[in-house]
C-alpha cells in the first residue's frame, strides 16, 4: 500500500518531483458513460504546491477535479494520493485523506440551513465545542452568511451559496484543496478576499489545485499552470512563462 511513487513515464514538461506528491494522476482517461472527457492526463501536485488548471469551456477541467477527488473513477490510468493508489477508492476516503473539493456551482445541501451545512462539514473532525469554534471562524470569514445562519441554504443567493461552499473548506488548512470555478458568481471584492485567504492557507502548507476562468488572480497565486484543451493537457509549466503561452492559446482560439 504505502509504496513509494513509481517512476512511471513522467509527462515531459513536469519536473520530476523529489518528494512524494500529494496528488498524482497518471495517464488518466475518464468518461461519462459513452461520452469521453479526458484523454491521457498526467498531472502532479506536490507538497505545498499550487497549481492552476486552465482551459476553455468544456475542456475537461471539472472532470479533472472530479477525478482528483474520487467523484469520477477513471476508465484508465491511476490516481495516487500521498503515494497510495486511490484509483478505485470512493470519495469519502479521499476526504479522509485530506483532499477536499469545492465543486463548481451551488455546492450546498439545499434543504439544510446554513448552520447545518457547516456543522455537517465540521463534525467529522471536531467535537461539539470544536464545531462551534469553526462556525465562528467561518462566519468571520464571510459576514454575509453569518447574518443568514438560520436561512435554508437553497434560498440563498447564488453568491451566498458559493461563500457557504467555500466557508466549509477555508476555515481549516487541508492537505489538498481543489476548488472548481473558484470566483464564479462572487462579487469582485469578495473574490479578492477569497484569494487573500487562499494565500494564507497556502502559506500554512496546503497544496492547491484551482480551476479558474479569470486568470489574473489564479496566475498571481499559483506556482504552476496546466492548460487543458479538448480533454488533454496541451501545456504545463511555471506561471511566469504561462501568461504568454496560455494567453496566446486562448485568445487565438477565441478570436477566430
Amino acid at each position: 500500500m504505502n509504496g513509494p511513487a513509481e517512476t512511471a513515464a513522467a509527462p515531459v514538461a513536469t519536473p520530476a518531483p523529489l518528494e512524494i506528491p500529494v496528488l498524482e494522476l497518471r495517464h488518466v482517461n475518464a468518461a461519462y458513460g459513452p461520452f469521453r472527457a479526458l484523454f491521457d492526463v498526467s498531472l502532479t501536485v506536490g507538497e505545498g504546491e499550487t497549481v492552476a488548471l486552465l482551459g476553455r469551456n468544456g475542456a475537461g477541467k471539472t472532470t479533472v477535479a472530479r477525478v482528483a477527488s474520487g467523484l469520477v473513477e477513471p476508465t484508465e490510468g491511476e490516481v495516487m494520493v500521498d503515494g497510495n493508489d486511490f484509483t478505485k477508492v470512493r470519495a469519502h476516503r479521499y476526504a479522509k485523506a485530506g483532499v477536499v473539493h469545492v465543486p463548481e456551482g451551488r455546492a450546498v445541501f439545499g434543504d439544510f440551513t446554513v448552520e447545518e451545512n457547516l456543522t455537517l462539514a465540521f463534525s467529522r473532525t471536531h467535537d461539539r465545542s470544536g464545531v462551534r469554534n469553526a462556525l465562528t471562524r467561518a462566519f468571520e470569514l464571510f459576514p454575509p452568511i453569518a447574518q443568514r445562519r438560520r436561512q435554508i441554504a437553497g434560498t440563498l443567493s447564488g453568491g451566498e451559496q458559493r461563500m457557504l461552499a467555500m466557508a466549509r473548506v477555508l476555515v481549516e488548512s487541508p492537505r489538498l484543496l481543489i476548488a472548481d470555478e473558484l470566483s464564479l458568481g462572487l462579487a469582485p471584492i469578495v473574490t479578492d478576499e477569497v484569494y487573500a485567504v487562499l494565500g494564507r492557507i497556502r502559506d500554512a502548507g496546503t497544496s492547491l489545485l484551482i480551476v479558474e476562468q479569470h486568470m489574473g488572480h489564479a496566475l498571481a497565486l499559483c506556482d504552476r499552470a496546466v492548460l487543458l484543451d479538448h480533454g488533454a493537457i496541451s501545456w504545463q509549466g511555471p506561471t511566469e512563462e504561462a501568461a504568454e503561452a496560455i494567453g496566446a492559446a486562448l485568445f487565438d482560439a477565441g478570436a477566430q
Binding site: 467523484l71 470512493r90 470519495a91 469519502h92 473539493h101 465543486p103 445541501f109 434543504d111 439544510f112 467529522r124
Partner: peptide, 23 residues
C-alpha cells in the same frame, strides 16, 4: 450527527461523501 448525515445523504450522496462520510 447521524441524523444530520442521514438527511444529507437523501439530498446528495456525493456531496456527503465529499464531507468524508460513507454515504
Amino acid at each position: 450527527r447521524l441524523g444530520l448525515r442521514i438527511r444529507a445523504v437523501v439530498q446528495s450522496p456525493r456531496m456527503t461523501e465529499l464531507n468524508g462520510v460513507n454515504a
